[in-house]
Design a protein around this nucleic acid. Sequence first.
DNA 1: CACGCGTGGCC
DNA 2: TGGCCAAGCGT
Length: 355
Amino acid sequence: MENNFISKKISSWYLQHKRDLPWRNTQNPYYIWLSEIILQQTRVVQGMPYYYKFIEAFPTVQDLANADENEVLRLWQGLGYYSRARNLHKTAKMVLENYAGEFPNTYQELLKLKGVGTYTAAAIASFAFGEKVAVLDGNVYRVLSRIFGESTDISSNEAKKVFMQLAESILPDQDAATHNQAIMEFGALQCTPSSPNCMFCPLAMDCVANAKGQVAALPVKSKKVKVKERFFHYFIIEQNGNFAMRKRVGKDVWEGMYDFYLNESDENIQELSYLALEDKFLEKILENSLIKRESSIYTHILTHQKIQTKFWHLVINNNFPLHLPTELDWYSLNEVDDLPKSTLVNNYLSSFVFE
DNA sequence: CACGCGTGGCC
DNA sequence: TGGCCAAGCGT
């Protein structure tokens, strides 16, 4: 490519302004993979402590593969998008079983790993193995849309082809790794989503959006999220110093994380007696317990959901032979602490001390 | 393939 | 304040 002045300017800017991030000082594919999974949809400052925790707890991919899923999820607790942690663990096992413990070293092979899509495969292939493949992430979409004045909706299916073509048009033959790092860092620090400082931009004179006064309008992104309201009543069931919890399964939020007995309604119902009408188990435990604590309403905001929750701490009479539903099991206080839990549950638990 | 999946920071 | 975003992926 002869119009590589764009790549050269961005890479030059990168060498002057790049942050010193730990995963940039290694070519170990395990560390690079780990950092890329952590950073999916996640800010560097938010992911950084998790990166350090993981490499300390699991220095090698073998260590990660040999861990229990709960242990991995517990370490991931608080970072969100927990399928990343479950897939991280699955992939570590795959690397051990299918690749003899050696990370696959090409874009095409990397794509076969769980949780590794086109972006992450390109990132690992270029950073760890020097393969000439272009990364296409949120930063790259933004930088390219502005430089080239490309207004294709980045939420559309067509965008992936259009922008990949642009990305490849400025991908240099040599050192794709530095180029890829550079364009992402350029998007993160210079060509920012809102109010970029184009006065100091080395590409100001080359940028179509800047010339047309379209910087704020690009990239075009149409997708809007619809927020669904949900109403939870969590019942912390305690008997003889043990607590009933379950591992969440299915397609709902927080799959794999542990929580308490949940009564969910479409409407904002406050009366326990009303809830118990439709919930025989709840009716039974209410008849045989004391309400030790009734929390205030916790409003938990997720990307697609707004969940209003009240927590009820019930102490079941010691002599009542309570038979738990199959999904629930008893855990000691220390075990409760060790289990992976959502931030909503942890917010409640950390708001007071069990006595 | 459009949608669901977390959390925290920003204005 | 509420909406938007931040190194996407699986289904």
